[in-house]
């Protein structure tokens, strides 16, 4: 029996501007990512990868088409910004190119921030943060500020933050760009492990050819349109 996709886009279009300044950022994009899958999103600069990630992440509204997140249709006119914010908080974890940890919070606090924002009490949020940091092998760095962490450690902390609210979807924007190939590989292995153990759908935007073999599916995008799927 085929599992229902966690991410589903049907004929999604997105344009910016109007008239001569109109730019077609996404053209008739349809894709689905099932639970437990790590999907790569490849394409040259300006091809629409980030726009697509923003649409999946419920940050920007598509001009047309259907976006379903964990079986729920979003951008159907009934969603307010607060609802989308809550959806992101509960169902989507974000991993950034340069980890984007808050510089004034320790590793534990950065990870505990997401559950705190979701309404968990401080003890539960901290316990969850400790559990995740241990799980990702950086438990011993819990009290360090981001500036004191190595690139690999900071990225693991960022992954822990992304997982803190047990999201079903993880969106990673070039998470290995700042890492050497060995660390990049281990981050992807970690994401694969997370996808498998948490039944999550992971979408990774990347240029890094060294990690292509670690994706279950690869979507190629050019000029806003999907041109291939492996």
């Amino acid at each position: 029996m085929e599992t229902a996709p966690l991410i589903e886009l049907r004929s999604v279009f997105k344009h910016f501007g109007a008239g001569d300044a109109r730019v077609e950022a996404l053209v008739d994009v349809s894709l689905a990512v099932a639970p437990g899958t790590v999907a790569g999103l490849l394409g040259p600069s300006g091809s629409g990868k980030s726009t697509l990630l923003n649409v999946i992440g419920c940050i920007i509204e598509p001009s047309a088409g259907v976006v379903r997140i964990d079986g729920v249709t979003v951008w159907d006119g009934r969603w307010r910004s607060g609802d989308l914010r809550r959806l992101r908080l509960d169902k989507i974890g974000f991993i950034f190119q340069s980890h984007n940890l808050l510089p004034f919070l320790t590793a534990i606090e950065n990870v505990a921030l997401a559950p705190s924002l979701a309404g968990r009490n401080a003890e539960a949020a901290t316990a969850r943060a400790r559990e995740l940091l241990d799980y990702l092998g950086v438990g011993h760095r819990g009290h360090a500020l981001p500036a004191k962490l190595s690139g690999g450690e900071a990225q693991r902390v960022a992954i822990a933050r992304a997982l803190a609210n047990r999201p079903r979807i993880i969106l990673a924007d070039e998470p290995t760009a700042a890492l050497d190939s060995q660390r990049a590989g281990s981050v992807l292995d970690l994401l694969r492990k997370v996808a498998r153990e948490h039944e999550a759908a992971v979408v990774v935007v990347t240029h890094d050819e060294n990690i292509f073999d670690r994706f279950d599916t690869i979507f190629q995008i050019r000029d806003g349109a999907l041109i291939g799927k492996n």
Binding site: G57, I59, G82, R85, R86, L87, R88, L89, D90, F94, F96, N100, L102, P103, L113, A114, L117, A118, R161
Partner: peptide, 16 residues
């Protein structure tokens, strides 16, 4: 600004 954008992205409400 970057920290604020990150907070908004991960779902922090405006009141935070």
């Amino acid at each position: 600004l970057r920290e604020i954008a990150t907070l908004k992205l991960i779902g922090a409400p405006d009141r935070v």
